[in-house]
Nucleic acid binder design. Structure first.
Length: 169
DNA sequence: GCCAACGTTGGC
DNA sequence: GCCAACGTTGGC
């Protein structure tokens, strides 16, 4: 029987098929890679931007995350995470005391959602924004695009892999 | 602290 | 639907 080379699945490719890659920003003063390492997992609460929300709700278990420190002493990718649970309604939107309270949201019609992120790895040294900007191979990354403020961004696999290579150097 | 870039709100 | 005013993000 003729086989189509493109459709031959090793277990590994089967597992990683459809896996996607993301960059998620966090301010380390608020929640850092060290906090995630300590907690093991976290609900990614507080995202209040529709485009970012749409990314969050499309994430699947196993999707890989670049954890990016913004507004930090050392700005850049600090480590890796992965999606451990798909998005649920963000509990903070129902909490009147929370800065993320959303008056327009109801339990029946939640507005904001958050997945659970699991700690994977803290890089020995941060792959800095400057390094990313200086590397022509990463020229397409959204994070270095002018005016790009989205706190949840899709990342190409090649860029994800390249960042990891830089971190291991 | 500055400010460019962007998103949201609300009057019309 | 337009758009001015305002708020936020985030690097510098």
């Amino acid at each position: 029987m003729a086989s189509k080379p493109g459709l031959v699945h090793t277990q590994d490719t089967a597992k990683s098929e459809g896996r996607r890659y993301w960059l998620m920003k966090t301010e380390p003063d608020v929640f850092s890679i060290d906090d995630l390492k300590k907690n093991k997992t976290t609900l990614w609460e507080g995202v209040r931007n529709y485009q970012a929300r749409n990314h969050l709700t499309s994430m699947k278990v196993g999707d890989q995350i670049l954890l990016y420190h913004s507004s930090a002493e050392v700005i850049g990718v600090a480590g890796l995470g992965e999606i451990s649970k798909e998005a649920i309604p963000d509990p903070a939107q129902f909490d009147k005391k929370s800065e993320y309270y959303e008056p327009a949201a109801t339990k029946e019609k939640p507005r904001w959602f958050c997945p659970e992120v699991r700690f994977v790895e803290k890089f020995k040294t941060v792959v800095t924004l400057e390094q990313i900007k200086d590397d022509p191979a990463l020229a397409d990354m959204l994070v270095i695009k002018r005016g790009q403020r989205l706190s949840v961004q899709p990342v190409e696999k090649k860029d994800f892999d390249h960042i990891i290579k830089m971190a291991r150097k």
